[in-house]
Computed example of a mutant assay.
Amino acid sequence: MEALTTSTALVALAEMGDKTQLLAMLLATRFRRPLPIILGILVATLANHFLAALVGHSIADVLDQGWFRYAVAASFVLMAGWTLIPDTFDEDEPIKAPGRAGVFVTTLIAFFLVEMGDKTQIATVALGAQFENLFAVTTGTTLGMMIANVPAVLFGEALAKKVPMRALQVAAALLFLGLGLWMIADLQGWVG
């Protein structure tokens, strides 16, 4: 349960103001078809985050040594700093009309590619390394992405004007920092 709730909270907060959330808003305003956009985000996130969690889980199994656990903890601390750097998305960059592929496939491909190397994908790798339950990590990170992006699709422009993105970024950074410091304290034996 800890893997699911931690993964959900970290990714939902980290996604606020992220380039994939901005992409969700852009797709919603350009195509005005929320259901295929939401389904495209869901499928792209499941695929991307399963692979990321699998990589993290595989690395943790191979490198189950103290230094590696410190590296995972340090990655959470670094993610805290990275979360404070707002993403930008070039709205002038054209998104091609869906054509034959349709809105779903356009969203699926765009989200999968934009998520590559993104902070939420890297967080998923770290979560996969920290927790044994790959299914819970993938479910949690996907749920976190959906919590952040479904409202962006449904209420895009109005939401951007009312939600204090900086406060959400700071909260996400504090969550990453707290998790990283807790892991270090646990490795040092300071936590019971």
Rank of each mutant, 00 (worst) to 15 (best):
E2Q: 10
E2T: 13
E2S: 09
T5S: 14
T5F: 13
T6M: 11
T8N: 01
A9F: 00
L10R: 02
L13A: 12
A14R: 04
E15Y: 02
E15I: 05
G17K: 08
T20N: 04
Q21M: 11
M25G: 12
A28D: 10
P34A: 07
I37C: 11
I38C: 10
L39V: 15
L39G: 14
I41A: 11
I41K: 05
V43T: 08
A47M: 15
N48E: 15
F50I: 13
F50N: 06
L51V: 15
A53V: 07
L54A: 14
L54T: 12
G56F: 03
G56E: 02
H57L: 05
I59S: 12
I59N: 06
D61R: 14
V62C: 13
L63C: 09
G66D: 11
G66F: 13
W67S: 14
R69D: 06
R69I: 04
V72M: 07
V72R: 03
V72T: 12
V72L: 12
S75I: 04
S75R: 03
F76D: 05
F76W: 04
V77W: 01
V77K: 01
L78Y: 03
A80V: 05
G81N: 07
G81W: 04
L84S: 02
L84V: 07
P86Y: 00
D87I: 00
D87N: 02
D87F: 00
T88Q: 14
F89E: 08
F89L: 15
E91R: 14
E91S: 12
D92I: 07
D92V: 07
E93K: 13
P94R: 11
I95T: 12
K96M: 13
K96W: 06
P98K: 06
A101D: 14
G102D: 06
G102V: 07
F104T: 14
T106Y: 02
T107N: 06
L108C: 09
I109P: 01
F111A: 12
L113A: 14
M116D: 10
G117T: 08
G117N: 09
V125A: 03
L127G: 09
L127T: 08
L127E: 09
A129T: 03
N133Q: 13
A136R: 01
V137I: 11
T138P: 04
G144C: 05
M146I: 06
A148W: 06
N149M: 08
A152D: 06
A152R: 02
V153R: 06
V153F: 07
L154T: 04
L154V: 06
F155H: 11
E157R: 15
L159V: 13
A160H: 05
K161D: 14
K161M: 11
V163C: 09
R166C: 12
L168Y: 04
V170Q: 00
A171P: 03
A172N: 04
A172H: 01
A172R: 01
L174I: 04
L175I: 05
W182N: 05
I184R: 00
A185C: 08
A185F: 09
L187G: 10
L187C: 05
Q188D: 08
Q188P: 03
V191H: 02
V191I: 15
V191C: 06
V191N: 03
V191L: 12
